[in-house]
Structures are given as structure tokens and as C-alpha cells.
């Protein structure tokens, strides 16, 4: 699971308030090199929750992301490379996504999170 995916997901358990973002419990993290595509990053940036990306990157020990981003940084290649790495190259292979309120753990296996809820959670 890339941090792009992590940024898009929330916990859908019924009856809770605080669903986002998932806390990451990692047991295996890989780095997979991806083609650098600045246009894709500029397109994605306004659709992301930056603090969630920053917190997720920090929790996996991925450094270099600023706390906040300004429009002109999206033209700065050095920043875009760091952003690219955090968003697309860091991959959680095995571990859990933990609901920030209920603590319910969702397994991540072979890079694929299983977010199916049980019948008493729907």
C-alpha cells in the first residue's frame, strides 16, 4: 500500500466520529522505484490531505516532507522528488491500518489492505 492509497481511505465502522487517517503499524516496508511524473504530482496535490501524508511518512521514517506546502513549491523539482518518493515509492507490504478512534485493526497483506467490515460493524 502506497501512501497515496493511505491518504484516500478512512475507517467506515458505524457509530464513530473520528475515522481519518488510519494509524500505520508496519512490519514490512519496501521502497519501489517509480517513474517521476511531475504533472501527476501537481494534479494529485490539491486532492490530498497533506497533514495525513506528512504524519504517515513520519511514522514510517520517511523524512524530508515539509509541514505545509505552498503553490510555488509545486514547481520546485527538489521538493517534487521528495513528494514523489513519499507518495508513490514507499510501500507498506505487511502490517495493519488502525482506526484512530476504535482501535480496530485492518490487516495489510502483500501490499493490499483488507478494509472489509464485519457484520456487526456495518
Amino acid at each position: 500500500m502506497k501512501l497515496l492509497t493511505h491518504n484516500m481511505l478512512e475507517c467506515r465502522i458505524k457509530g464513530i466520529e473520528n475515522r481519518y487517517p488510519f494509524v500505520i503499524e508496519a512490519s514490512q516496508v519496501d521502497t519501489v522505484e517509480q517513474d517521476f511524473d511531475p504533472d501527476f504530482l501537481r494534479h494529485m496535490y490539491p486532492r490530498l490531505e497533506w497533514p495525513a501524508l506528512k504524519a504517515a511518512a513520519d511514522s514510517l521514517g520517511v523524512t524530508g516532507l515539509p509541514t505545509s506546502v505552498s503553490e510555488d513549491m509545486l514547481e520546485d523539482e527538489e521538493f517534487l522528488k521528495v513528494f514523489h518518493h513519499a507518495l508513490l515509492e514507499v510501500v507498506l507490504i505487511e502490517g495493519f491500518l488502525v482506526c484512530p478512534e476504535s482501535g480496530r485493526k485492518f490487516p495489510v497483506s502483500k501490499g493490499i489492505p483488507n478494509l472489509l467490515l464485519n457484520e456487526d460493524e456495518v
Partner: peptide, 24 residues
């Protein structure tokens, strides 16, 4: 080919996308 940017096991009737996610 480039592997998928994301694969998630999820229910199409209750997708786990955050509620403020739009136009992506």
C-alpha cells in the same frame, strides 16, 4: 507494466474513501 498505485479489498456498497475525497 507499472504495478497498480493501489489495490484495496473493499465493499463497493460501502467504499472506504474518506468523505471529503472528490474529483480524483
Amino acid at each position: 507494466l507499472k504495478p497498480p498505485a493501489g489495490l484495496v479489498r473493499a465493499d463497493a456498497h460501502g467504499l472506504p474513501f474518506r468523505s471529503n475525497l472528490h474529483n480524483i
